[in-house]
Write a protein that binds this DNA or RNA. Sequence first.
DNA 1: AACCCGTGGTA
DNA 2: TTACCAAGGGT
Length: 302
Amino acid sequence: MTTPNPPFPVSDLARFHEEVLGWFDDAARDLPWRRDASPWAVMVSEFMLQQTPVARVLPVYAAWLERWPTPADLAAEATGEAVRAWGRLGYPRRALRLHAAAVAIVERHGGEVPHSREELLALPGVGDYTAAAVESFAFGGRAVVLDTNVRRVFARVVSGVQFPAAGVTAAERELATTLVPVADAHRWAAATMELGALVCTARSPRCEECPVADICRWRAAGFPAYDGPARRGQAWDGTDRQCRGRLLALLRDAPGPVEKASLDAVWPDAKQRERCLDGLVADRLVEPVGDDSFALPGHRPR
DNA sequence: AACCCGTGGTA
DNA sequence: TTACCAAGGGT
């Protein structure tokens, strides 16, 4: 994020806090992980929400927590069951990491989700964002929560640009730190995220509904278009990801092991297919069964 | 730092 | 229709 010029006026900061927090009181969605959810439930939601929209997470989240209400419940389960229950949320390695995080929570933290940033970051699948989100949403901590929504809101309102840079810079983190209000840090995190999700959206921002339109530096500058390096698109047709998705979908939808011949039928390019199947096995998303079949991993951890 | 990893909704 | 995009993490 570039340095604002002129800088974001200090007088606007108080209004930023007041308006966004006030807007959140009325506009916040009633999401299940916001209704006195346990720390584990918050963690489950955060894993599922990594790169997956809320609407698709909702049903899987509900089923998941009904089946595995605590880390110990999931930790005692076969990893393949986690992959199956993950369904079509995408990036199924997240299911494996969530399972591994549950095992680590049982082994290292007596089955309770840890509070500290350091302990959270040490869990599989927990990076800067997720650690901050759990600190903030599960425990009411003062973490600096920087997700794609918050970054976009700050880029626009404070820095006056359409989109933030590709990666979080030290300056951006510092700026975000200075923006956290003295009181209500965890509500600030949720509120700025919600504003980005509902109003200050990536493609068609609803500025007419925005509580801070009058102090928005991007708007004041006339909505200048993003002028940074081109953001690479995500190719899909013919990629290994598509191939892996097809293979795993077949295994997920089957009650037990699937013969190699059936897997061969879902992807025409034999060389790529073999590479992807090997990759899935290497990733522990799939395991060989007998001589000529494959299945989701059926073994218990340890 | 750049690239890999799924899936489906939307403008 | 085709890109873009979504509460990122690991390497």
